[in-house]
Every structure is written in structure tokens, then in C-alpha cells.
Simulated scan of single mutants.
Amino acid sequence: MAKSSQPVLKRMLLFGACLLATMQLLAQSPTIAQVDFARADSVARLYHGYSLANLNDLSHKLTHPFTNDLEKFRAIYRWVCNNIDNDFDYFERNQAKRKKLLNDADALDDWNRKFAPQVFKRLLQQHSTVCTGYAYLIRELAYHADIESVIVDGYGRNAEANIGGPGVPNHSWNAVQLSGQWYLCDATWSSGTIDTQQGLFIKQFREAYFLTPPELFVRNHYPLDTRWLLMEAQPSLTSYLNGPLVYNDGIGQEILPVAPATFNVAATRKVPITFRFSAPIQPEELTLQIVQGSHVLDLSPKVTPEADGLYNITHTFPARGTYALHVRNSGDYLFTYEVRIAK
């Protein structure tokens, strides 16, 4: 009997409501990056704008050309990223409400129950949603393809959220089981970015959040249920919230800060500070962007290799003040520190 999409109405987008089966959580295979997904991506493009009225039908169309779950899931994932927009108005409304009700669990649950049907309706009619809608759609399309996926709720981190402090649960993504192994992905962040200054969603597919290795994914995602870190050595929520800010291209290029370990760095003027990072190969176009107020200084630092894929750069601040130090490669922002020079 064909699976009906109707029962999903009863499994609405309830924040934190996904059930976790007892299972072994395994880390990702390093061979994912070597797979050619051109055919799966092509199939996803064939059904551009397809209706969400029958999720079973859409899932079948996307997956029936393939014999393995990896390509099936890729076709589902690319279709969602290509066809669903991040709704800025709903995003702002949901973020503000979650922050306001952070310390009132009952009120927060009530908000999520009331907000979920609105999100589902907008997703169905306008192909527009927020993170819970993306995660819901990934889970349901995977379900109709006999692929197990769950919604993971937790803390997403960017330049405007979860920089220090106690943290605010503000984001949802997915874990998916393929060939007995669990992987992490975030269709919301893969689909594009929100320009909060202009109030616009900019659609641009980002490979960085598709089946991302856990040690990279945790740089800007932290689950409420730490089993979904998929890591044996688990970082604490506190270290996550207080670490350097890592951007999409830092994840995508696998160029990540190692030391200092905190976003806020205290230093002394005219005394060099060393920043250590890891990278698969030595970056050829690494730059530092130093920002203080409206003053922006772009520099080309000397990159010094160390052992085991580690590199360091050094900078000296000549005057007191608070600075944003952005590390970039080929013009892309990788990670950021805030440096305070008090002496």
C-alpha cells in the first residue's frame, strides 16, 4: 500500500518533539566528498516548482531513478534546497518569540504548537518556511523513500546569535541514516542566506552543510540532545557558545580556528598575538581584515606551517580598543575573533 502524506498533519513541526530510536550513532565516512552527485542534482532540477500536496508522489519522482539511498537522499535534499525559500518575516517572528519565552517552557511549547500549523500552511502553499519547515520536509520526503531521518533541534550560531551568554535554542536541522550510518545536514543553511539588513533571502546552494563531518558541523550547530553530535569526544555547550565564530566558508573549506579557543581575546598593544588554525592544505590567498568602528584594514599576513595540518599567523595591535579580526581566504570569510586591547 502506498504511504499517504496525510498522517504527517499529525506530526507537525513541534520544536523538540522528534522521537529518537535506540540505535548506534556512527560518525561519517570520509568518502562522501568523493561521490559524484551530478545525476541526483539533475533529477532534482527536473521537478522544479513541483507541488507539495502529495509528498509520497514527489519523493517517488525524485528517488525512483536510483538504487542506493545516498543518491536518493541527495536528490531529495537538492530539491528542498532549490525549491524552498527561507521566509524572513516568519524567521524574525519565530526568533523573537523563542527568545522572549526562553525561560518559560510551557509558554514556549504553546507557541511552538500554535506556530507549527502556520509554518506548514505557508510551506504547502508558498514553498516558503523557516528552519523547522525545512527539517520537517527533509524528514517526510526521506520517510516516503524508506530512509530514516529525524529532526534535530538546538543552537545555531552566526554573527547575530549565540555569541557567548547562556545560549538560545533557535534552529533545527536533520540527521539521516544511510547504509546503517548516521549523517548530519542542514537544508536551511544549504539553501541560501538571509540578509537581515535588507530583509531578503538570497538563494545559493551551499555544499558545506550536506552530510557534514560532525567535527565540522559542531562549529556552528549544537543539539539539545548531545547524542546528535555524533561525536565520542563531545565539546561542551559553553565552549561552543564562547568559541571563535566560524562561517559557512570556513566549514566548506575546512579552514578552522584552533587557538585562541575563545571568541573574545584579551591582549596587550604592541605585543604580537598568534592565531593558529587547521587546513587541509596551506591557503594561498589568506588575508586578515581588522575592523574598529568604521575603520577597516586589510592585510596579507605571513602564514607559517606547523605540523599535522596546522598553521599560524601573527598580528600586532598598535593601540588600545576593541577590534574584530576576520580571517578570510580568496575573499571568503572563514572565522572571526573579537580582540580587546586594554593596555
Rank of each mutant, 00 (worst) to 15 (best):
A96S: 14
L62E: 01
R219F: 12
L55A: 09
V327L: 14
Q6H: 13
D195K: 05
T268L: 11
R227V: 03
L20V: 14
D153F: 08
A142I: 01
M12W: 09
V327W: 03
G156E: 07
Q177C: 15
D298H: 10
Q289I: 13
Q253H: 06
A116Q: 06
L229S: 04
L288V: 02
R93I: 08
C185F: 01
P30R: 05
D332I: 00
A105K: 09
S294K: 12
Q125D: 11
W182L: 00
T322A: 12
A2S: 07
I147V: 02
Y134T: 02
K61T: 01
N94S: 08
W182Y: 01
L9E: 13
D308V: 13
N82F: 07
N112F: 11
G293F: 10
D36V: 09
Q28N: 12
W173Y: 06
Y337K: 00
L124M: 15
C81T: 15
A145K: 01
E207F: 08
E207C: 02
Y47V: 00
K270C: 11
W173K: 01
S278H: 13
D106S: 13
T336H: 00
V130I: 15
L229E: 02
L184E: 05
T212D: 08
Q34F: 08
K302M: 10
I84Q: 01
V291R: 12
L230E: 02
N174K: 11
D146P: 00
V150S: 01
Q198I: 05
S4E: 09
L256D: 07
P223T: 07
P65G: 03
K61Q: 14
A259S: 15
R39T: 14
H315S: 07
R227G: 05
L229F: 06
L13G: 11
N312H: 07
F73I: 02
D85E: 09
S42E: 10
F73Y: 13
P30K: 15
E207P: 00
T322S: 10
E148M: 10
G252E: 09
K203R: 11
L297R: 13
Y333A: 09
R78H: 10
E254K: 15
E92D: 15
K99P: 04
K302H: 11
L334I: 04
C81I: 04
L108C: 10
P169W: 09
N103Y: 14
R98P: 00
Q34D: 10
Q181E: 06
R340H: 07
S236Q: 02
S149N: 05
I255N: 10
P257W: 01
F66K: 03
P244L: 06
Y183A: 01
G180H: 11
Y209T: 06
N82D: 09
D69A: 13
G180L: 05
D41L: 03
V296S: 13
N220S: 04
Q28R: 11
N94H: 12
F91E: 15
Y77C: 00
D57C: 10
P318R: 07
G165V: 03
W173H: 05
L184M: 06
T31P: 00
P257E: 02
L102M: 14
D332T: 03
A159H: 09
A319N: 14
I163Q: 11
T212P: 00
